[in-house]
Amino acid sequence: MNAAIETQTKLAVASLHRFVGKADKGLLDDDELLYLVIALKKVPQRPRQDKPLRIPIPHPIYAVDNAEVCLFVKDQKGEGHKAAKLKVREERVAGISKVVGVSKLRTKFESHEAKRQLCNSYDFFAADERILPSLPKLLGKAFFKKKKQPVPVRLTGKDWAGQIRKACESTYLFWSGGSSLTIKVARSSQSEQQGVENALAAISAAVEKVPRKWAGVQALFLKTADSVALPIYQVLPDAPTKIEQ
Rank of each mutant, 00 (worst) to 15 (best):
C168K: 01
F109R: 04
E32G: 09
A225H: 12
P211E: 08
A225F: 05
I243V: 15
F174I: 09
V153H: 02
F109D: 01
C168L: 15
A205D: 13
A67S: 12
E110R: 15
A94I: 00
P240E: 13
P136M: 07
F221G: 09
N66F: 13
K77V: 05
Q194C: 07
A83I: 11
A14L: 07
V210A: 07
L135K: 04
I203P: 09
D75G: 04
G95M: 11
F174C: 08
L40W: 01
A167W: 00
W160S: 08
P52Q: 05
E129C: 01
I5E: 10
I164W: 02
F124E: 01
I57L: 09
A63S: 15
P231R: 07
T241W: 01
R130T: 11
E244F: 14
L132G: 03
P44T: 08
S134T: 11
G101D: 06
S188L: 01
G26A: 08
R154D: 14
D159V: 00
A215K: 15
A201W: 12
H59C: 02
N120H: 11
K213H: 14
L222Q: 09
W160T: 14
L220P: 03
K223Y: 06
E244T: 09
S191K: 08
I183D: 10
H59W: 10
G216F: 03
G80H: 08
C70K: 02
L220Y: 07
Q245L: 12
S103C: 04
T241K: 14
V37C: 07
R212S: 14
K108R: 15
K82D: 13
L16N: 09
G26S: 08
V210I: 15
Y62N: 11
P231E: 10
K87H: 11
Q117I: 02
Y172S: 11
A202W: 03
K104E: 15
I131E: 05
E192A: 13
C168Q: 06
E90T: 12
A161W: 02
K184R: 07
G162R: 04
A142Y: 11
S15C: 01
L138W: 05
D75V: 03
V88N: 02
K147E: 14
A229P: 04
V196P: 14
A239S: 05
A206E: 06
D65K: 11
N2V: 03
I55L: 15
I57Q: 01
F109C: 00
T171H: 05
A114D: 05
K147W: 08
Q8C: 03
L34Y: 08
K148C: 00
R48L: 14
V37Q: 10
S111I: 00
E110H: 14
L105H: 07
W175V: 05
D30H: 14
A161M: 08
A199Y: 08
L28G: 03
G177D: 06
K51I: 15
A167L: 04
Q149T: 05
V88F: 00
A23I: 00
R46T: 05
L220Q: 06
A219Y: 06
K147C: 01
P56Q: 04
D159T: 09
D159P: 06
L28R: 05
K77Y: 09
R89P: 00
E91Q: 12
R89Y: 13
R187F: 04
K22H: 06
L16Q: 06
R165D: 03
G177H: 10
D65Q: 12
L33E: 13
